[in-house]
Structure formats: structure tokens, C-alpha cells
Design a protein around this nucleic acid. Structure first.
Lengths: 162, 162
DNA sequence: CTATTGTGGACCTGTGATATCCATAATAAA
DNA sequence: TTTATTATGGATATCACAGGTCCACAATAG
């Protein structure tokens, strides 16, 4: 259970695009060279980011990519969901509510069922909670906030050197 | 990016074993029938749980499985890590610290590097934070806490019916 | 000794991640 | 308008892994 390399590449590419002293359009060549990823593969990723409105792309001479909105409004969650899809973290495979009566007192009049009629599995419920926690955290971190952090460190290091 | 079915099966199997009115050893046949999963596949999963000390197994007539420790000390995280492995949620693939200078001011004297010499990638750092949040949540939920929740609901429903 | 029950290895299949290559479309500059 | 540049999308290849089956073997109770 790990985020894919595509997500890695996407995040780093966006950080490059979000750099304050970038010119408007960054070509796939520059991105490819910077990240050390092949142009062909990286362009697939950028294409996906474009389809989901994270970046804009312009073909032709001097074309390239740029962020479609301010870096502060591109969250980690946004990027991850584009690359990894929006399925939920966990799905109970016993959705047919078969003999899913984990807690059935055999022979009792009122078996306690772990899953109730409304298709609600308690395991799934816990995992949904986990997912919500995760997503909330990922939403609080944006391309911009990471850039800020990087610059903060830069200046701290500068200060220490003197 | 989703937890595997094995994790699903494992959690449900443990809930079955954790049921207060279970006899000591539950055979693979009973588990298989309850979960609706083939014996052969489920036994692989139980084997794994045994190797990691989550359950105990005894072969032979009247053999079967039982929890190796109280249900309150078997957390969701425990189970997930057995089934999914213990790799971290995200790993920066640019570990060779190549030209990973995402924030390099071209031509500036002091390029700000997103990754510093100590192999610390800021993207990875954010993701590690996410992982910690997730793990903390998953550690707070145990097989026992889910059983308790199920029984609580049971009695609430009972009350409503009268 | 025998029936029962878990263990572990070999094997199979489909799917998805990672990646490459190429033809095509769009665009700016000459 | 032509040409060079740059992004797009389809086809394809490879590989690992999830999910699953089958079987021989070991351990155990009666």
C-alpha cells in the first residue's frame, strides 16, 4: 500500500512549476531534465494533471505547462486524487450482506449483525474515519506551503552560516 | 491505492474470533463459511496472522484458531501492517539526490534545494506526517472497540423496538 | 492407527504500474 | 505559408503483485 511513482513525479513537477521565479511556460524537456524522468512518461502525467484542471498546457513553440491556479490552492490531496483515483481507502467486499453476521449469537433470537441492512459495515466505518483523517491532513498542505517551508529553511541556513 | 481484500478478510476473521461467546478453537471451515471466502485462501491469511503473533493455531482434531492476546490489544494498525507490509506510504524516488534542486534559483549563488544532503525530501516529509496521522488513528481502534460498538448498537436497536 | 486440521510450496491468471514509441494536432516564428 | 517546436493520445511491452487454487505433508486427538 504505497502511493505510486506517478504521484511522486506529479508533486515534484508541480513544485517546479510553482517556483516563484519561473517563466510562464515550462516545457516537458526542462521538467524531464529536472526530475530525471523520461519525457514520454512525464508527459502522460502532465496530461492527466491538465485534464483535471491542475495545470494549463499550450503546445507549439515556447509552449509548455503552468499552474492553472495559485499554488496555495493546489493541495496534496488534489494531486493524489488525480494520480491515484478517488476510490475509498477500504471497501468491505462482503457487500452482498451474505452470512456476514460476525457477531451472530448462534441460535439467539436477536443476532447482532456487524453489518446492518443499510449496507453499513462497522469495519468500513472505522476505515472511513481513517480516510477522513488522512484527507484532512493532506488538504492542509499545498504546493505553496511546501515552497514556503523550503524557503524558510533556506534563510535559516543562510543565517547559520554567518 | 486501497487496502487489499486480504486485510478485509483478516479483520473480519479476527472479529469472529473475538466474539465473546466463541469456543476456544475456531476451525477454518467455520471461518470460511462465515466470511464467504474459500478455505484455501483464508488459511493463507490465518497463517500470516499466526506468524506475526496475532493468533494462535493448533492442528489436529478439534483444532483451529484463537486470538493470541486480548482483542483490546489487537489494533487495526497491527492487522493492516501484517497484511499490507510495513513500507512507508510514500517514498521519494529521487533518492540519488540528482538534480533534485526543485527550488534552485538559476544562477544564484545559493540555490535553495528542496532536498538537502541528509536525504530529506520535503515532499516525503509531508507524506510522513500524513502517515503518522493515519497510523495514530488506526492504533486507537481495536478488535475489541469494534465489538463494543456493535453490541452498543444492538442494545440501542433493542430499546427502540419496545 | 486414523481422521482431522493447519502449513507451506507450486502454480495460475488478470490487472495495474511503469515505461517507450509514434503519429497527429496545435502553435509561434521565419 | 512553411517550418520547427511542443503537447496529446493510442498502441504496445514488461513486470510485479493481488487473488486464488491445489496438493503433499506435519501435527494432533481419540
Amino acid at each position: 500500500m504505497q502511493y505510486s511513482k506517478s504521484t511522486d513525479y506529479a508533486l515534484h513537477a508541480l513544485l517546479h512549476l510553482g517556483h516563484p521565479e519561473r517563466h510562464a511556460n515550462v516545457g516537458i524537456k526542462e521538467l524531464s531534465a529536472t526530475l530525471g524522468v523520461s519525457e514520454s512518461y512525464l508527459s502522460k502525467i502532465m496530461s492527466k494533471l491538465r485534464q483535471d484542471g491542475i495545470v494549463r498546457a499550450v503546445p507549439g513553440v515556447n509552449g509548455g505547462y503552468e499552474l492553472a491556479r495559485p499554488a496555495g490552492r493546489i493541495t496534496f490531496l488534489d494531486v493524489i486524487q488525480v494520480m491515484e483515483g478517488r476510490e475509498q481507502l477500504f471497501e468491505c467486499s462482503n457487500s452482498k450482506s451474505q452470512q456476514h453476521q460476525l457477531l451472530a449469537d448462534d441460535g439467539a433470537d436477536e443476532p447482532v449483525r456487524e453489518r446492518r441492512g443499510n449496507g453499513e459495515c462497522l469495519v468500513e466505518k472505522v476505515m472511513l474515519g481513517a480516510q477522513q483523517h488522512l484527507h484532512q491532513y493532506l488538504q492542509e498542505h499545498t504546493i505553496q506551503s511546501l515552497l514556503d517551508e523550503a524557503f524558510k529553511r533556506h534563510f535559516n541556513l543562510e543565517g547559520n552560516k554567518k
